[in-house]
Simulated assay, not measured.
Amino acid sequence: MSRKPRIAVIMDENTSVDGTRYDTSKSYFAAIHRAGGLPFGIPYLADLVAPVVEEFDGFLSVGGRIGFPEAWYVDGDRSQYQPSDRLAVEQALMEGFLARNKAVLGICNGMQMLGCLHGCRMVSDVHASWPGALNHDKRDLLHGVTIRNGTKLAGLVGAETFEVNTFHREALVEVSDGVVAAAHGPDGVIEAIEVPGRSFALGLQWHPEKFASADHPGTRVFDAFVQAARRTD
């Protein structure tokens, strides 16, 4: 009998204050549940990594603002965010799920981690580093994205262009041979990546969970994510 896939959701934290509280949008959990999955929040405890990787069906890396390793940035750049216990646990979880070819979805911070674990590099302030870039760190801004033909994302969303939200300062700017840039903004900023050869390893720079209750092409990503995580006992 089939069962609902169990999705591990790394918790975010209140890094803008003092990092003493887990602080994660309910929208992530609602989007996974709407798509037919069972979401579980995962705290930053190292001894949880192995059992979570073994027992859960998919991993969602949510948005956040934490310090990444300097080696993940282009030369001369580095993170402007504070160090966090989240980094080591999240990286171990993502690597564990990828190694077992289980479904991985990275959103914002999660897309950047997914890319950098596959050889991509990023900048700490895309608006300052990318000539002509939009100010992407604006919660009330919507902008278009263009989906690359022939990608897995194109098949999932069933649309060539649509509007997305944007509230991020960092962004991937160098894509390795191990990753495909699946979408771009009107300014050329990379808005989605996917890892070929994996059952489901997709990163989105925007926040599709914010559209979970609307008829938006991006919500289909959650449907596909949960479906990829589905298995039969």
Rank of each mutant, 00 (worst) to 15 (best):
L142S: 11
E170W: 02
T146Q: 08
F162Y: 14
T146A: 12
F167D: 08
D140V: 03
V157T: 11
V164G: 10
F167R: 14
H143C: 06
T146W: 01
H168W: 02
E170L: 01
G155L: 12
F167S: 10
E170Q: 15
E163A: 15
G144V: 02
V145T: 06
N165P: 09
R139F: 03
R139Q: 13
K152I: 02
R139L: 07
H143A: 09
R139H: 09
N165K: 10
G150R: 01
T161H: 07
D140F: 02
H143V: 03
A171E: 09
L141M: 13
G158R: 05
L141P: 00
E163H: 07
K152E: 10
N149W: 01
N149I: 00
L156R: 01
G144T: 11
F167C: 04
A171N: 13
G144N: 07
F162T: 11
E163W: 09
L141Q: 09
R139S: 10
T166L: 00
V164E: 08
R139P: 09
T151P: 00
R169M: 07
K138V: 13
E160T: 14
N165E: 09
V145L: 08
N149R: 01
K138R: 15
N149Q: 12
I147K: 01
R148K: 12
R148H: 04
V157N: 10
L142C: 03
F162M: 13
G150P: 06
N165L: 02
G155Y: 12
G150F: 08
I147L: 07
F167E: 10
F162E: 11
T161N: 08
I147E: 05
K152L: 08
V145H: 04
I147N: 02
E160G: 11
A154D: 08
V164S: 10
K138C: 10
I147F: 01
L153S: 00
G158Y: 06
V164I: 15
L156S: 01
D140T: 06
L142N: 12
T166V: 04
V157A: 04
L142H: 10
L153K: 02
T146C: 02
A159E: 15
L156N: 00
R148Q: 05
L141V: 12
R139W: 09
A154H: 11
G158N: 09
V145K: 06
D140Y: 03
L141E: 05
L156H: 05
K138W: 01
H168T: 11
A154E: 04
N165C: 04
T146D: 07
T146V: 05
E170D: 14
V145R: 05
H168G: 13
T161Q: 14
V145Y: 03
H168A: 04
V157W: 14
G144Q: 14
T161K: 09
V164P: 09
N165S: 06
E170Y: 01
L156E: 08
L142T: 10
A171Y: 06
T166A: 14
E163Q: 15
A159I: 14
G150Q: 05
L153D: 01
G150D: 14
T151A: 03
R139M: 10
L156D: 02
F167P: 04
F167L: 14
L141G: 00
K138A: 13
E160S: 12
D140G: 03
F167Y: 14
L156M: 15
E160D: 15
V164H: 07
H168I: 07
R169T: 13
